[in-house]
Design a protein around this nucleic acid. Sequence first.
DNA 1: GTGAAAGCGCTAACAT
DNA 2: ATGTTAGCGCTTTCAC
Lengths: 357, 357
Amino acid sequence: MPVRLTDVADLAGVSLSTASRALNDSDHPMNDQTRQAVLAAAKQLGYGPNIVARSLRTERTLTVGIVVENILSPFIPPIIRGIQDSIDEHGYVSIIMNVDWDAENELRAIKTLNNRQIDGIILVESCIRNSEEVAELKDKPHVFVHRLFDVPSPGSVVPDDHHGAKLAVNHLLKLGHRRIAFINGLENWAATIDRLKGYNDALADADLNADSTLIKDGDWNVQSGYRAVKELLSLAEPPTAVFAGNDLMALGAIYAAQELGMQVPRDLAVVGYDDRDFAGFVRPSITTVQMPCEEMGRKSAEILLSIVNGQMTQSEALFVPGQLIVRESCGVSKGPWEFEPERASLTRQKRTSVRIQ
Amino acid sequence: MPVRLTDVADLAGVSLSTASRALNDSDHPMNDQTRQAVLAAAKQLGYGPNIVARSLRTERTLTVGIVVENILSPFIPPIIRGIQDSIDEHGYVSIIMNVDWDAENELRAIKTLNNRQIDGIILVESCIRNSEEVAELKDKPHVFVHRLFDVPSPGSVVPDDHHGAKLAVNHLLKLGHRRIAFINGLENWAATIDRLKGYNDALADADLNADSTLIKDGDWNVQSGYRAVKELLSLAEPPTAVFAGNDLMALGAIYAAQELGMQVPRDLAVVGYDDRDFAGFVRPSITTVQMPCEEMGRKSAEILLSIVNGQMTQSEALFVPGQLIVRESCGVSKGPWEFEPERASLTRQKRTSVRIQ
DNA sequence: GTGAAAGCGCTAACAT
DNA sequence: ATGTTAGCGCTTTCAC
């Protein structure tokens, strides 16, 4: 029932090898007339190559593995999307494995992928590395994307949080703020360290000396931003602006200010980080720094494929910058209040509904 | 360099077929001693089967294709996760293809998957069906999940929105509300039709005759919920509760009430639909009906695999019910205000960080 | 420029 | 209970 290359060759009246060459437009010299004949036969039969058979022979599956912490984590889908868009252009597909922050799962996932002869692996935000796993990765092209605790190592693609934090603080400085608070993320996370450093450096660049009472601990969750701003606003000299380490804490910051009868941004400017979808929904909408997830995904895929194709062996750590997204929470009004539409539908939706019942 | 089955057989001093039988614990009778010898050899060499070669022979790739509108759409990752969890138990993996609501992309995606000899396809929220594509799907096990415009057809898994809407309205009725408004979604969507029907049926079951002035049109976005409630609250007899067709419009409803100086839920109860992540972040947090995405994913995978294994040919449309998630926006206080933590980390996170530098 | 034939690593029918 | 062998569909030497 399924059409094989033999069928095409027979119909075109040529040999198997000629049919193969014609369809793979190999650089092998061949009569253009026979090529056309093969192409016509293939089309007539609706031939599609059996990729499994081809892979067995060529020892390339045109498949990359993506090992993710959990596809439900907010940054994971855009990273995957970036990877997929990039590899799709080269005829590759991907197999995604969730490991749920578990070292054993991760090891199993890598083994599964290796048994399936994938050409390379992208590991997304998996902070767990034990020696067994590293051995499993040996000799297999791989790239790390994002990170939690690690210092950026060779072969990894990471967000440039230091740069992003400076963007945020510089924006507040430009608006005239001088007492700018910072709400930290969880200790030891690279994002926490880099964003704090960006905050400090931006203040230093503006010749402002940092006031440590304006730096509060948070844990990435809404509640911690709320608590932090409750404390900050009870200081003798409260801040006029808050840079929260992420959008969730920025939201908590806004709620704290509102609960005290203050208006954001009039009485307190708030900037977040990440550009989560809700940053555009809530009121006031949240000015924030975008996590360049899709771009990170694309870059990591490009690097991986160059390694696979032997054009590169090991890449330096790549820092991907995100942009500042100015919305309402920091005092630059865009005019009358407007909600943003759902993100996924923004650029890609194009409903060409051709229904058949 | 890579270990093949031959290597294992040689080391164990048995033939290729014996090695194969031992490792696949086939029901073929065999000496347990030789089996152990093979297993030991395989372990010693770190043998893993070449799945590509196996697939070529067995004509099964243990791979399913998942065709999605866009992995960035909010419901898609949980559906994928449900599918992956289910198929993982049977040794299957998945290949995801984004089609961006484009019929041509969808056709290409299905062809690509077929060439890769996948065992079945799950199509998620792809409303586009043309005859070519259906032909491409012919003879390949497939299941449809979710839907936009279609009536549920055989072989599809859909949310039971009618049931969910009744849950929402019944909850408001139980709280004593008698004037309950409804904000519709986009016309012709199954979700719109079913949720409206559930609303009407729940009111009818309570012997309340529907008041058409309490039903407003919306377009799923925040702004339309905002506008609808602005209008509703200017009625001579305004509602005391609003059931919004989704969480985004529920959020807009809350903002409209707040802008008029009203408090939610004290002055107006609001219930949403979908259980988007922000429903737990915002203030007041939003009572809503969960879209049972993971469950839909699991069910669709179970159905697909039974078809693949020949235990089933065509399934009836399956309706998956979601639960009511009671939060703050409808007047049942859970005590002091509490933000919900990030969803992805809820059940699955288990950081067993074993770092190696 | 085209064809014949080997072989990728595995499973399964067939022999012993 | 174990071994021998054919062959899945394709690419790619090697011969002509």
